[in-house]
Amino acid sequence: MSIRFEGVSHSYPERGQVLRGLDLDVGPGEILCLLGPSGCGKTTLLRLASGLEPLQAGRITLGGQLIAEPGRETPPEGRGVGFVFQDYALFPHLTVEENVAFGLRFIPRGQRKWRIMDALARVGLEGFAAAWPHMLSGGQQQRVALARALAPRPSVLLLDEAFASLDARLREQVRDDTLHVLQEAGIATLIVTHDAEEAMFMADRIALMNAGQIEQLGTPTELYLTPATRFVATFLGEVNVLPARVHAGRAETPIGTVPAPEALGNQPVQVLLRPEGLRVMTAPSADGPAAPLAGDLSGCGAVAEVEACRLLGATTLVHLAVPDGQGALLHLHARLPPGVWLARGEKVSVAMDPQRAFVFPAEAP
Rank of each mutant, 00 (worst) to 15 (best):
A248W: 02
L223T: 02
A260L: 14
L225I: 04
T234G: 09
R250M: 07
E262L: 08
E238H: 12
A248P: 07
A228N: 00
E215C: 11
F235G: 04
I255S: 10
T226G: 03
M209Q: 05
N240V: 09
R230C: 08
T221G: 05
V239L: 15
Q216H: 07
N240L: 06
I214N: 09
A233V: 09
V241H: 09
V232C: 06
I255Q: 08
T253E: 12
F235M: 02
V239T: 15
V239E: 08
R230I: 05
G218L: 12
A244G: 11
N266V: 09
P261F: 02
E262T: 11
M209K: 02
G218C: 12
L242K: 12
N210P: 01
L223F: 01
G249L: 05
F231E: 00
E262I: 04
A211S: 10
R250D: 03
N210K: 06
G265Y: 10
V241P: 02
E222L: 01
T219C: 05
I214R: 15
A211L: 05
P254E: 13
T257P: 02
A233P: 14
G249I: 05
L225N: 01
G237Q: 06
T229K: 09
E238T: 12
V232H: 02
V239K: 11
A263W: 07
H247S: 14
L217T: 00
P259M: 00
P227C: 10
A248E: 15
V239R: 13
G256H: 10
G237R: 04
V246M: 03
A260I: 06
V239P: 11
P254N: 13
V232K: 04
G249V: 02
A251Y: 11
G212C: 01
L217E: 00
A233S: 14
P261S: 06
A251F: 14
A244V: 12
Q267I: 07
A228G: 08
L236G: 00
L225W: 02
A211W: 00
G212L: 00
A211V: 03
G265F: 10
L208Q: 04
L223R: 03
L225T: 06
F235K: 03
A248Q: 15
E238L: 07
T229V: 08
L236K: 01
P254R: 09
P261E: 05
Q267S: 14
A211K: 06
T219W: 08
R245T: 06
T221F: 10
T219F: 07
G256M: 05
Q213E: 13
L225C: 08
E238F: 02
L236I: 08
T221Q: 10
V258Q: 11
T257K: 13
L264M: 10
V232T: 13
R250A: 14
P261M: 05
A248S: 15
